[in-house]
């Protein structure tokens, strides 16, 4: 009987790494996204709205 075929790690290494996998494997890129998104969408947007409130005369 023929020996069972195996998936060797070097075969996997030859394949290009998908973009999503590259993103998930880069903690510093994730850090940038995780800081930038809430800073822009929550802090900066919120602060701009507060600053834009007209002062009472």
């Amino acid at each position: 009987m023929a020996a069972p075929q195996t998936i060797r790690p070097e075969d996997e290494a030859d394949e290009p790494v998908p973009a999503m996998q590259q993103l998930l494997d880069n903690p510093f890129l994730l850090l940038f996204i995780g800081i930038a998104m809430p800073t822009v969408l929550y802090v900066v947007w919120g602060v701009m709205e507060i600053v834009g409130i007209p002062l009472a005369r």
């Binding site: 994730l30 996204i33 995780g34 998104m37 809430p38 969408l41 929550y42």
Partner: peptide, 8 residues
């Protein structure tokens, strides 16, 4: 990472 903090 993208959205959880916005719930504040």
């Amino acid at each position: 990472i993208c959205f959880l903090q916005l719930a504040s």
